[in-house]
């Protein structure tokens, strides 16, 4: 099996989808000829043609319309994959996503559907400042009718993207851009490691899916449970290793619908939990997990649920690492819950 990074794995997923199904179309700003600013669609227009992988206009109204177009197209039976260049730029499209795309099936009582994928590079750790670093997943996890997916490695990125387009319902697919090229252990000044040395960097060329709604225990343990998604899965692993804490780490993968069974089983076993997100704390997705855990596992808990999050500030540029939940902050969180 070839080693791929996340970009290559996403590209491979779209290649497989385009090859298998003429109803799959891909579009976005710079997504056509240029292959996207992160090169996720590189070479696909040349291989499949201008009408299947194409550029979309650049401005806020047009970005909103990219999502709208996906709705219209999906209602016509196509399977569109739209790219929003950065998750920070998704807000002009929010009416089309929140009021339209998410509700087409419901408000038409199943007469129309809007199965499509909106891909978007997401999260911080790349010195992107406040407009290229956001993690806006909670805006979308709050919306009935949407599924929200965040892969944390190349193998899952491909399998989840294929599962997303085949799910028949709209999926907001956030890609942790910090780990596009290699896992990140949350220590800012360390050199990047490569996906080639990670087991999940082995990606089959052919079609496969990773089931939506299923989390994975990426590191079994007894001392506490860490629930993370995207980049922070790797930071959590590095923290547990570095501090020698026997943490059980759950890679959530799908935020909506999240895998409550895997979460509850782990928390009932360990009694101690850290829920982690890069996004600001208040009303973040970690709050949903914390609330659900206390409803589900209250009598098993040995310590308060610890939310490890970004701060309630916009994402800073110069002080990025003061904002980001780094390995050191993770270690403090793990110690807090295990020593409580």
């Amino acid at each position: 099996m070839p080693a791929m990074n996340i970009i290559q794995a996403l590209n491979s997923a779209m290649d497989v989808l385009l090859d298998a199904d003429p109803d799959v179309v891909i579009f976005g700003e710079d997504a056509g000829y240029f292959g996207g600013v992160f090169k996720a669609t590189d070479g696909l227009q040349a291989k499949y043609g201008l009408d299947r992988v194409f550029d979309a206009p650049i401005n806020e109204a047009a970005i909103a319309a990219i999502a709208a177009m996906a709705v219209g197209m999906a209602a016509r039976g196509l399977k569109p994959i739209a790219e929003i260049q950065f998750a920070d730029y998704i807000f002009p499209a929010i009416d089309q996503i929140v009021s339209e795309m998410s509700r087409i099936r419901y408000r038409s009582a199943g007469q129309f559907t809007s199965g499509c994928v909106v891909r978007s590079p997401w999260g911080g750790g790349i010195r992107g400042g406040q407009t290229h670093s956001m993690s806006p997943e909670a805006f979308f996890t709050h919306v009935p009718g949407l599924q929200v997916v965040v892969p944390s490695n190349p193998y899952d990125a491909k399998g989840l993207l294929i599962a997303s387009i085949e799910s028949g319902d709209p999926v907001i697919f956030f890609e942790p851009k910090r780990i596009y090229n290699g896992p990140f252990d949350g220590v800012p000044d360390k050199p990047l490691s490569s996906w080639a040395r990670h087991p999940k960097g082995e990606v089959p060329e052919e079609r496969y899916t990773v089931e939506l709604g299923k989390a994975e225990i990426v590191r079994p343990g007894e001392a506490c449970t860490v629930i993370a998604y995207g980049t922070l899965v790797h930071v959590a692993e590095a923290a547990a290793e570095h501090a020698g804490i026997d943490a059980e780490i759950i890679d959530l993968k799908t935020l909506v619908p999240y895998d409550i069974e895997t979460i509850a089983a782990s928390v009932n076993k360990t009694g101690r939990v850290v829920v982690a997100q890069e996004a600001p704390r208040t009303s973040g997705f970690a709050a949903e997990l914390a609330a659900q855990i206390q409803e589900e596992c209250f009598y098993a808990l040995e310590a308060p649920v610890f939310r490890l999050t970004g701060w309630d500030t916009p994402y800073p540029h110069a002080h990025e690492w003061a904002y980001f939940p780094t390995r050191d902050r993770f270690i403090r969180a793990l110690k807090t819950v295990t020593e409580a």
Partner: peptide
Amino acid sequence: PQAVGYAMA
């Protein structure tokens, strides 16, 4: 824009 998307399809 939905109508435009549909027409494109």
